[in-house]
């Protein structure tokens, strides 16, 4: 057993193992460990990034929800205000229209009255003339003086009043 230990063999073994060590270190352990470390770091970073993004998204979502809520309230207020304004406008338009209509009605009534009085007066004059002409024809007398005419007009006025 002990005679199997020789210096040459030990040198061979040491040389072989050193060659194996440096080769495996260069081609296997170092690059693979570095590769796995880098990958682990990459995964960690991406998980952290994802977490950060998620938190950011959550914050954004909350702020958007807040904004939407505010916008809704604002819109409600605007609509309410517009409705109140429209109501007021409506009321004022309707009332002014009523007033105008009433004013028109009153004016029209006055016009009608005036027209009627005018017509009545013209009619009276013509009736008086016709009556005088008829009376003069009947009496064949010249009744075309002022006294008769006043008499006839008085008579017609009385008849109109009656």
């Amino acid at each position: 057993m002990l005679k199997s230990i020789t210096a040459v063999k030990s040198i061979w073994v040491a040389l072989n193992l050193l060659i194996l060590y440096f080769t495996l270190k260069k081609f296997l352990f170092k690059p693979v460990t570095e590769f796995m470390d880098n990958r682990a770091r990459g995964i960690k970073e991406s998980i952290e990034n994802a977490e950060k993004n998620r938190a950011e998204a959550q914050k954004l979502k909350e702020s958007f929800e807040e904004q939407i809520k505010n916008a809704k309230l604002e819109a409600d207020k605007i609509i309410e205000a517009a409705r109140a304004k429209a109501e007021k406008e409506y009321d004022s338009i309707v009332s002014s229209a009523k007033q105008q209509a009433e004013a028109l009605l009153v004016k029209a009534r006055e016009e009608i009255d005036r027209e009627r009085q005018l017509a009545m007066r013209e009619m009276k004059a013509q009736v008086a003339g016709l009556a005088l002409a008829a009376a003069s024809k009947v009496l064949e007398a010249n009744m075309e003086n002022i006294d008769n005419r006043l008499l006839v007009e008085k008579f017609i006025d009385e008849a109109g009043a009656a």
Binding site: V8, W12, N16, I19, L20, F27, L28, V32, G42
Partner: peptide, 30 residues
């Protein structure tokens, strides 16, 4: 310089390990 059978077997093993370590670690993907 003598070469023993255990050294030759060692060479075989080391050769296999070196070839494996060089060929298997190519084109690593994430």
């Amino acid at each position: 310089i003598p070469v023993y059978d255990s050294i030759v077997v060692m060479w075989i093993i080391i050769g296999v390990l070196i070839v494996l370590s060089v060929t298997l670690t190519r084109n690593f993907k994430t």
